[in-house]
Lab assay of single mutants.
Amino acid sequence: ITIHVNGVTYHFDNPEEAEKFAQKMAKTYQLKMEIHNGEFHME
C-alpha cells in the first residue's frame, strides 16, 4: 500500500496499518484524502 502525503511517499505492507496511518495524518493535518488506483493521496 502506498500513501502520498504532501509529496512524501510512505509504503505499508499491512493494509490496516496503512489505513490507521492515513486517518491519523488526515486528522492531524486536516488533509483531504483521495484514493487513486489503490494508492492514497493526501494534501
Results as ranks from 00 to 15, higher is better:
residue 1 I to P: 02
residue 1 I to H: 04
residue 1 I to L: 07
residue 1 I to F: 08
residue 1 I to M: 09
residue 2 T to L: 11
residue 2 T to Q: 07
residue 2 T to A: 07
residue 2 T to N: 11
residue 2 T to G: 04
residue 3 I to Y: 03
residue 3 I to E: 00
residue 3 I to K: 01
residue 4 H to E: 04
residue 4 H to R: 07
residue 4 H to Q: 04
residue 4 H to T: 06
residue 4 H to A: 04
residue 4 H to V: 05
residue 4 H to C: 14
residue 4 H to N: 04
residue 4 H to P: 01
residue 4 H to L: 06
residue 5 V to Q: 01
residue 5 V to T: 02
residue 5 V to G: 02
residue 5 V to F: 10
residue 5 V to K: 00
residue 5 V to M: 04
residue 5 V to E: 01
residue 5 V to W: 06
residue 6 N to S: 08
residue 6 N to C: 15
residue 6 N to I: 13
residue 6 N to L: 14
residue 6 N to D: 11
residue 6 N to V: 13
residue 7 G to W: 14
residue 7 G to Y: 13
residue 7 G to V: 15
residue 7 G to M: 12
residue 7 G to K: 09
residue 7 G to T: 09
residue 7 G to E: 06
residue 8 V to M: 10
residue 8 V to W: 13
residue 8 V to L: 10
residue 8 V to C: 15
residue 9 T to P: 13
residue 9 T to F: 08
residue 9 T to N: 07
residue 9 T to G: 11
residue 9 T to K: 14
residue 9 T to I: 11
residue 9 T to A: 13
residue 9 T to S: 12
residue 9 T to M: 12
residue 10 Y to M: 04
residue 10 Y to E: 01
residue 10 Y to S: 00
residue 10 Y to R: 03
residue 10 Y to G: 00
residue 10 Y to V: 06
residue 11 H to I: 08
residue 11 H to A: 06
residue 11 H to E: 07
residue 11 H to V: 07
residue 11 H to N: 07
residue 12 F to P: 00
residue 12 F to I: 01
residue 12 F to C: 02
residue 12 F to A: 00
residue 12 F to V: 00
residue 12 F to T: 00
residue 12 F to K: 00
residue 12 F to H: 00
residue 13 D to L: 12
residue 13 D to I: 10
residue 13 D to Q: 09
residue 14 N to H: 06
residue 14 N to R: 06
residue 14 N to D: 10
residue 14 N to V: 10
residue 14 N to M: 07
residue 14 N to Q: 07
residue 15 P to W: 14
residue 15 P to M: 13
residue 15 P to G: 08
residue 15 P to E: 06
residue 15 P to T: 11
residue 15 P to Q: 07
residue 16 E to C: 14
residue 16 E to G: 08
residue 16 E to S: 09
residue 16 E to T: 09
residue 16 E to N: 10
residue 16 E to K: 10
residue 16 E to V: 09
residue 16 E to I: 11
residue 16 E to Y: 08
residue 17 E to G: 03
residue 17 E to Q: 08
residue 17 E to A: 09
residue 17 E to K: 09
residue 17 E to V: 08
residue 17 E to D: 09
residue 17 E to Y: 06
residue 17 E to L: 10
residue 17 E to H: 07
residue 18 A to N: 00
residue 18 A to T: 01
residue 18 A to V: 09
residue 18 A to R: 02
residue 18 A to W: 06
residue 18 A to G: 07
residue 19 E to Q: 10
residue 19 E to W: 14
residue 19 E to C: 15
residue 20 K to P: 01
residue 20 K to S: 11
residue 20 K to Q: 08
residue 20 K to V: 09
residue 20 K to G: 05
residue 21 F to A: 01
residue 21 F to V: 01
residue 21 F to W: 12
residue 21 F to Y: 02
residue 22 A to S: 04
residue 22 A to K: 04
residue 22 A to P: 00
residue 22 A to Q: 04
residue 22 A to W: 06
residue 23 Q to Y: 10
residue 23 Q to K: 08
residue 23 Q to L: 10
residue 23 Q to E: 12
residue 23 Q to T: 11
residue 23 Q to I: 10
residue 23 Q to W: 10
residue 24 K to W: 15
residue 24 K to P: 00
residue 24 K to T: 06
residue 24 K to I: 13
residue 25 M to C: 13
residue 25 M to D: 01
residue 25 M to K: 00
residue 25 M to Q: 02
residue 25 M to T: 01
residue 25 M to I: 09
residue 25 M to W: 06
residue 25 M to E: 01
residue 25 M to L: 11
residue 25 M to N: 01
residue 25 M to F: 01
residue 26 A to E: 13
residue 26 A to N: 06
residue 26 A to F: 07
residue 26 A to P: 01
residue 26 A to C: 15
residue 26 A to I: 11
residue 26 A to R: 06
residue 26 A to Q: 06
residue 26 A to H: 06
residue 26 A to G: 06
residue 27 K to T: 06
residue 27 K to A: 11
residue 27 K to Y: 09
residue 27 K to G: 03
residue 27 K to V: 10
residue 27 K to E: 14
residue 27 K to Q: 10
residue 27 K to N: 05
residue 28 T to F: 15
residue 28 T to W: 15
residue 28 T to M: 14
residue 28 T to Y: 15
residue 28 T to Q: 14
residue 28 T to N: 13
residue 28 T to V: 11
residue 29 Y to R: 11
residue 29 Y to V: 14
residue 29 Y to E: 15
residue 29 Y to D: 15
residue 29 Y to S: 14
residue 30 Q to E: 12
residue 30 Q to K: 11
residue 30 Q to G: 13
residue 30 Q to R: 03
residue 31 L to N: 12
residue 31 L to E: 15
residue 32 K to E: 15
residue 32 K to M: 13
residue 32 K to T: 14
residue 32 K to D: 14
residue 32 K to H: 14
residue 32 K to R: 03
residue 32 K to F: 13
residue 33 M to A: 02
residue 33 M to P: 01
residue 33 M to D: 02
residue 33 M to E: 04
residue 33 M to L: 13
residue 34 E to H: 13
residue 34 E to M: 07
residue 34 E to L: 08
residue 34 E to A: 06
residue 34 E to W: 10
residue 34 E to C: 15
residue 35 I to L: 08
residue 35 I to M: 05
residue 35 I to V: 07
residue 35 I to P: 02
residue 35 I to H: 03
residue 35 I to T: 04
residue 35 I to A: 03
residue 36 H to Q: 04
residue 36 H to Y: 10
residue 36 H to W: 08
residue 36 H to E: 07
residue 36 H to C: 14
residue 36 H to L: 09
residue 36 H to F: 09
residue 36 H to A: 03
residue 37 N to W: 11
residue 37 N to K: 04
residue 37 N to P: 02
residue 37 N to Y: 11
residue 37 N to L: 09
residue 37 N to E: 04
residue 38 G to A: 03
residue 38 G to F: 06
residue 38 G to N: 04
residue 38 G to V: 02
residue 38 G to C: 15
residue 38 G to D: 03
residue 38 G to P: 03
residue 38 G to S: 03
residue 38 G to R: 02
residue 39 E to M: 05
residue 39 E to P: 03
residue 39 E to Q: 08
residue 39 E to H: 11
residue 39 E to S: 03
residue 39 E to C: 13
residue 39 E to F: 05
residue 40 F to L: 12
residue 40 F to T: 05
residue 40 F to M: 10
residue 40 F to C: 14
residue 40 F to N: 05
residue 40 F to D: 03
residue 40 F to Y: 11
residue 40 F to K: 03
residue 41 H to L: 05
residue 41 H to C: 15
residue 41 H to D: 03
residue 41 H to A: 02
residue 41 H to K: 03
residue 41 H to P: 02
residue 41 H to M: 05
residue 42 M to C: 14
residue 42 M to H: 03
residue 42 M to G: 03
residue 42 M to Y: 07
residue 42 M to A: 06
residue 42 M to W: 07
residue 42 M to Q: 03
residue 43 E to N: 08
residue 43 E to P: 04
residue 43 E to D: 06
residue 43 E to K: 13
